[in-house]
């Protein structure tokens, strides 16, 4: 096969993007028809409603303008319920990182124990299997009711959703460390603590990192929904607040930024994962 040029993929990406925006632009473009109602009435309703239609989907130009407006002034503060999109993203990222860190603190040691002891693995397996598939948002009412603090509840939801992939992956990674290496450690009379840190941990690290990467992805997905439920601050609240205003341009801007931040989080963990991979 002929090697493709370095620029082929980026050029194709730009082409796809252009095609998408073009289709979007032309499908949402609309010529406002004649105003069919009397001008006094028309002043009371939206521009599209005045011509007998419904307010429509915004085009890419509207969204671009809105996005630029947000990026130009990301940290404004016009009161408790109206803060810049940058501030909202920071709130959300903060919640995700706290919940994720707490989950890592619990999941990795616990996963280690489960992975090293088949007995504990078998004993805990039914619980993990039942708890794992529960949608994290289902925990929300229970969390609000028992924790009695919406902020901690949101962090708890992140905690619970990032817990399982890390736990399962750590246990799997630890359990599948090659027996030869453990045997070598044993013949050299390495203490079990040292074995854990110097043999098992590096050996299982790539699998653990994969779990963490899955977790952070899920956490970022869930935080938006959680904040839409609880409100207050965060990018999810921003989306909800703009839904309230039926402002599709704002919602699309937020969606783009949510995607970008999600990608950033994933890339960061991918870098970390690359640092711990090894060749056998």
């Amino acid at each position: 096969m002929k090697p493709t040029s370095f620029w082929a993929a980026p050029i194709l990406s730009v082409l796809f993007f252009g095609l998408f925006v073009g289709i979007w632009h032309f499908s949402t473009q609309q010529t406002l028809g004649e105003v069919t109602v009397d001008p006094e009435y028309a002043a009371l309703i939206g521009a599209q409603a005045a011509t007998g239609g419904q307010s429509a989907m915004p085009g890419p130009l509207d969204v671009g303008a809105k996005l630029w407006e947000h990026i130009r002034d990301p940290f404004y503060d016009r009161g408790t319920n109206d803060k810049g999109i940058g501030t909202q993203l920071i709130y959300s990222i903060g919640r995700v990182l706290i919940g994720f860190a707490l989950a890592a603190l619990v999941a990795i040691p616990l996963g280690f124990v489960i992975g090293m002891s088949p007995l504990i693995y078998k004993a805990l397996d039914p619980f993990i299997q039942v708890l794992k598939p529960i949608s994290p948002l289902a925990w929300m009412p229970l969390a609000l009711y028992t924790i009695k603090d919406s902020n901690i509840s949101a962090v708890f939801v992140i905690f619970i959703c990032s817990l399982w992939p890390m736990l399962v992956n750590t246990a799997f990674g630890v359990a599948s460390v090659r027996k030869d290496w453990l045997n070598v450690a044993r013949t050299l009379e390495v203490s079990s603590l040292r074995t854990a840190f110097q043999v098992i941990l590096p050996a299982a690290a790539p699998t653990i990192m994969t779990g963490m990467r899955i977790s952070v992805g899920i956490a970022w997905l869930v935080i938006v929904a959680a904040e839409m439920l609880v409100g207050g601050t965060g990018i999810g609240y921003f989306v909800w607040n703009e839904w309230n205003n039926l402002s599709i341009t704002n919602i699309i801007s937020a969606i783009l930024l949510i995607g970008l931040v999600g990608m950033m989080l994933d890339t960061m963990l991918a870098q970390l994962a690359r640092a711990v991979t090894y060749k056998e």
């Binding site: 009695k148 207050g232 607040n241």
Partner: peptide, 20 residues
């Protein structure tokens, strides 16, 4: 006084019960 916008009635109730 800080007036806080809230997402729904059930949340208003729960946040009030929680003394937030």
């Amino acid at each position: 006084v800080e007036v806080v916008k809230t997402a729904g009635w059930a949340v208003v109730r729960d946040k009030s019960l929680a003394k937030e």
